[in-house]
Amino acid sequence: MTEDVLAAGRAFLDREGRLVERRLAAVLFDGDDPAGVVDAVRAYRNGDGGFGHGLEPDKRCPASLPIDVECALDVLLAAASGRPGWFGRPDRAELVADACAWLGSVAAPDGAVPLAFPVMETYPRADHWTDWTYVPGLNPTAGLAGRLHRIGVSHAWLDRATAWTWAKLESGVDEDAHTLLEVAQFLAYAPDRDRAAATGVHLGDWLAKAAYFRADPADPAYGVTPLHLAPAPDSPWRGLFGDAVIEGHLDRLARDQQADGGWAITWQPPGQASTLEYRGVETLRALRTLRAYGRI
Rank of each mutant, 00 (worst) to 15 (best):
I246P: 04
D39C: 09
G294P: 05
G239E: 11
P124S: 00
L181M: 11
H228F: 15
G49F: 14
T179L: 04
P236M: 12
P191T: 01
A184E: 11
F51N: 10
L227W: 07
A264R: 14
G200V: 08
S171L: 14
V20L: 14
V173G: 03
K168A: 14
R15N: 01
G200E: 05
P270R: 00
R193I: 07
G49Y: 14
L115M: 15
P191M: 07
K168F: 14
W164Y: 07
P217I: 07
V135I: 14
P226R: 07
A188Q: 04
L73K: 01
A259T: 06
D127H: 08
G204W: 15
D234R: 03
Y134V: 00
D176K: 01
G54C: 04
R193W: 15
A184Y: 15
A40F: 06
A11E: 01
R10P: 10
W86F: 14
P84F: 13
R83W: 14
Y44L: 05
V224I: 15
P236L: 13
A11W: 02
A107H: 05
E175G: 00
S274N: 03
T266M: 12
T275S: 12
R15D: 02
T122K: 15
T199A: 15
D4A: 13
I246H: 05
D33M: 06
E282S: 08
A273Q: 14
V106S: 02
L287M: 02
A264Q: 15
L95Y: 09
C71F: 13
P34F: 10
A177W: 08
L65M: 15
A145M: 06
G82P: 01
V173I: 10
A196Y: 00
R147Y: 06
L240D: 08
G261M: 03
A264I: 06
L65I: 04
L148A: 01
G262D: 07
P90I: 04
V153Q: 04
P220W: 10
D159L: 09
Y278D: 13
A26D: 12
W102E: 04
L73R: 00
A196T: 00
G146K: 04
D33H: 03
G88E: 15
S105K: 08
N139F: 13
V183T: 02
G9Q: 03
G242N: 08
Q272T: 13
R214D: 01
N46V: 02
A161Y: 01
D33L: 07
F29C: 02
P140S: 03
V153Y: 07
G242L: 02
G54R: 01
P124F: 09
A63K: 06
R22F: 10
G294K: 03
R238Y: 11
R60I: 02
P57N: 03
A107N: 05
W86V: 02
G104E: 10
A259L: 14
G52H: 14
P62V: 01
L253W: 04
G49I: 05
A97G: 08
L76M: 11
G111M: 01
N139K: 02
D205L: 09
T165R: 04
D131W: 11
A63F: 15
G111R: 05
G262R: 00
I151W: 03
L187G: 04
S81A: 14
S64A: 13
L240H: 09
L169E: 03
I265Y: 03
